[in-house]
Amino acid sequence: MIRYAYFPGCASESTALSTTLANEFVFGRIGVDLIEIKDWNCCGATSAHVLSEALGLALPARALARAEADWPELDVVTGCASCYARLKLTNHRVRQDGGTRYMVEKILGRPYAAKREVLNFLDVLSRDDVKANIEEALMRTFRGKLRVACYYGCLNIRPCEVTGAKDRENPVAMDEIARLAGAVPVDWGYKTECCGAAHQNDAALEARPLAGRILHNAKECGADVLLTACPMCQMNLEMRQAEYIRKNRDKAVGRQTFPLLDVVLPPPAGKTIPVLSITELLAIAMGAGGERLRMDAHHVPVGRVIADALRDDAETEVFL
């Protein structure tokens, strides 16, 4: 049994409903035991570290210290890129710098040595033994009929000296996992570009175009579905999609300031693009039905595109 201490993150209790169900389903099927950190707290992303450096480190450290005390032999895994970035950075800083460790332990009032690693779901799903388990657990595959754009998000990759990521601009870990399920990853240009989720509340006007460009490029590069590895990206790219499309069109028309230099993007087709998490894709391929996964919770309907890809499959009707 492969075991990890698990930091679910706040989104798992609310907006990431279907992803959370898919996580449970997939990790159960592939023999990965995620042990929830007892009484975990919010990591503070994306506000705490903006207010105070000490607070930005102390919040993730509280959860990590609990994991370290309860299961000193387990690495910590989380499914959210924002949580991952904060947890990983805290772990890294405490490990690198004695002063930071002293401060964090003083504030926590308990020891924390950052002995274990912090990982994201992609790290876990990319393990060779886990990949073998995934292949075994597959009940049906998309047989090359579903073209997916894998969106990693910025914080699963950067800052590289903290995450240790090697493929900074064109990572392929998720592409390979999607390929296991028979999906076809497309070569596209926004794998690690920020979607602006952090500022969709306090600077909505400014941050909306970020997600718009990602969706636009995915469509232009021929993707049927956008795959995510973070519930924050997921919500941002999905919930506000109609708005982006409208904004993007305005923007495209409005951007004539430097006609020689700017690419005036063609007005987007106005068609939405479904957004799924990588675990949802795997869950479907492992036979989970749409109801069980609560696919109806998606803001952009996903049933049709999945059904089309699985058309000749016996269990297709579940999605229709």
Partner: peptide
């Protein structure tokens, strides 16, 4: 990066600051 079959070169015109 690629978009619509063309290569998009993204940079700053630092004289315009855009």
């Amino acid at each position: 990066y690629k978009e619509g079959g063309r290569l998009i070169c993204q940079g700053e015109d630092s004289l315009l600051g855009k």
